[in-house]
Amino acid sequence: MTATVPRRLLTLYLPLSLAAIVLLFPFYWMFITSIKTDRELIDLNGLPFWVFEPTLEHYRVLFAETGFLRWALNTLTISVVATAISLVCSILAGYALARLRFRGAAAIAGAIFVTYLVPQTLLFLPLLEVVRQLGLSNTLWSMILTYPTILIPFSTWLLMGYFRSIPRELEESALIDGASRVRAMTQIVLPLALPGILSAAIFAFTLSWNEFIYALVFTNSTDIKTIPVGVVTELVKGDVYFWGSLMAGALLGSVPVALIYSFFVDKYVGGLTAGAVKG
């Protein structure tokens, strides 16, 4: 037992800290940049890793002179609704493709994957036409309804994998017990697939949170912008980057989400154990 501490140090804590440093250093850098004065930022004689005259000016600019709070609210609304739509569609489709025997299953699974192959850079121009025809341009709906196209293919395939990994026997015995398929699906398969569903949810939410091109092209006013579009289009002015505010925007646009995820990650493990007990 005494040997486990150095061993754990070597197999867990050391690589973990290394990974943390590499992955999180840019965030430290964003933070440092966001509280430096412009003068200190370009001072090459000082120690760049530290701040000597911290300032909250860049945060003030972000909140007082841009519509950051509005953008955050928009991004949140769009992401939540688009994720919900995508999850419902993907759970239904993933279950059908993984569990039901029907003609054309492989073809449909393939077709869903193909839609994912179409690059957004190719799609955004003709897509704006569709969005306009539906009268959705410059509304949050233009994003809420188009984001699922990026989210459904992956979520469906991810969930197909999960549904498959759940032993068929569990469900079949319930069916034989007289439960309907829908009941078998909602009460047996779904709880077991919870980690997968949460994973798909995190994926979908993050991608909606991140999306740039559609949000850039479909919106025409500051009130409708999302965080990435608002920050990039309004804080890079001419040939001047407002580094401090840009970095403040990047931080505030990601850290809260990570904090929320830290609660979810917990649930996501809990979902697993619950499923395991039932199984």
């Binding site: 969005v131 341009s137 092209v217 309004e234």
Partner: peptide
């Protein structure tokens, strides 16, 4: 609507192509 110089063009092209904006 004020946008960064580099981000203006995709918006303009898309609007002209879609016939509205």
């Amino acid at each position: 609507e004020l946008v960064a110089a580099n981000e203006a063009q995709p918006k303009i092209v898309a609007a002209l192509q879609a016939g509205g904006g």
